[in-house]
């Protein structure tokens, strides 16, 4: 759980949240292409990609490893029930943006 979320849950002020976020997460409020693409993954894999069993966690992975497995899902070299249908919809550049964003989660 991020520092930001702990602070939000304990009800501290927005000012404190901002100050504490400096030492906790650099992602609070971050919005870019990787964040928006990853948000599509997070629907099933949980916010920040932390997993929703049996959906596995997808955060913190090595960038090259994630791009490799997604491309293998797309080619069906890696067997899946669902992931090939999603993986085929993204370019290499988009997969890299997702992997780079979720690596920091």
């Amino acid at each position: 759980m991020s520092v930001k979320r702990v602070v939000m849950m304990t009800g501290l002020s927005a000012g404190l949240v901002g100050a504490l976020a400096l030492s906790g997460t650099a992602h609070a409020g971050e919005l870019n292409r990787g964040a928006l693409l990853s948000a599509q993954c997070e629907t099933c894999h949980g916010t920040d990609g932390t997993g929703a069993a049996p959906m596995p966690s997808i955060n913190g992975m090595d960038v090259a490893d994630m791009v490799d497995v997604m491309k293998a899902f797309a080619s069906k070299e890696e067997k899946s029930t669902m992931m090939y249908r999603h993986a085929q919809g993204y370019s290499d550049e988009e997969l890299k943006a997702v992997a780079e964003y979720l690596k920091g989660k």
């Binding site: 949980g46 929703a52 049996p54 959906m55 029930t81």
Partner: peptide, 12 residues
Amino acid sequence: YAKGWYKGITSD
């Protein structure tokens, strides 16, 4: 995975 989907989207 349907159950995982439900858990994922409702937590999201």
